[in-house]
Design a protein around this nucleic acid. Structure first.
Lengths: 139, 139
DNA sequence: CAGCATCCCCATCGATACTG
DNA sequence: CAGTATCGATGGGGATGCTG
């Protein structure tokens, strides 16, 4: 069990509405899609892994190198989570020594789309944020 | 000090490139804008607070009610962080008893834009993800 | 090479109680 | 009403070592 399921938080209905849900009200109140997704991509490693795999599929060690300082433990765990979510595929080649290739799925690729929008926003407003922080800290 | 500064992670340059940075290379390698932003909005409360304030400014207690089950402790702390980032303003009315109104800034409002895109994605693909999980767990 | 198991730390968050 | 202060539990995640 990776973690507890997303909270069925009252404000999540707000979030869902904010997300421009279709006409019909969400039938399953026990899950908030927004939080469900954000819990994943909001973490450090999942995002970096998705980005690392964007240009091309990679093997375990190559993912580790691409991401940089992730431990094998977290890499394994995060890859599992992403595979479980259908964001990437895990293909084992029974060579000697074994090699495992990870590749984005269409779903994983499509996720990078809105993430890129967010990244663009971050890049655009980063200076403003940093300035705001400095001003705030002068107090 | 809210938390440690964002890691100057090698893959962040990848992330930055992915975010379609302008021609010039980022001069400050010690900060990754993408992680900087994601560290915030990836957390539970900041997002819910931004969403709660989107329709209209709210006072402390009203934010708490709007968000739902957040403790005063986390609410205070998160509001501070968001204020520090320039995402919202804090205006104190010296009435008796005192009241404090929190309102989104233009920056905070603009942040909800890409977040909405992400939320829309989450809403759209949530079923697919849940299905992938169920299939994965059948093993 | 890929990945699992173990240990352990410490940051985060909730609960509670108190103040201006 | 709008916080601050303090304590305590919980679990995320790093380091290390072992296996197929």
């Amino acid at each position: 069990m990776p973690k507890a399921p997303a909270s069925n938080h009252p404000a999540c209905t707000e979030a869902a509405r904010f997300a421009a849900v279709p006409p019909g009200a969400p039938p399953d109140p026990s899950v908030c899609p927004v939080r469900d997704v954000l819990d994943r991509i909001g973490q450090k490693w999942p995002l970096l892994i998705l980005i690392a795999l964007e240009p091309a599929p990679l093997r375990f060690s190559n993912v580790q190198r691409a991401v940089g300082d992730i431990s094998k433990r977290m890499l394994t765990q995060t890859l599992r989570d992403l595979e479980r979510d259908g964001m990437l595929t895990r293909r084992v080649y029974p060579t000697k020594p074994p090699s495992v290739e990870y590749a984005l799925t269409a779903l994983g690729r499509s996720a990078l789309d809105p993430i890129a929008a967010l990244a663009a926003w971050a890049d655009l407003h980063h200076d403003t944020i940093r300035a705001a922080r400095q001003q705030f800290d002068a107090a």
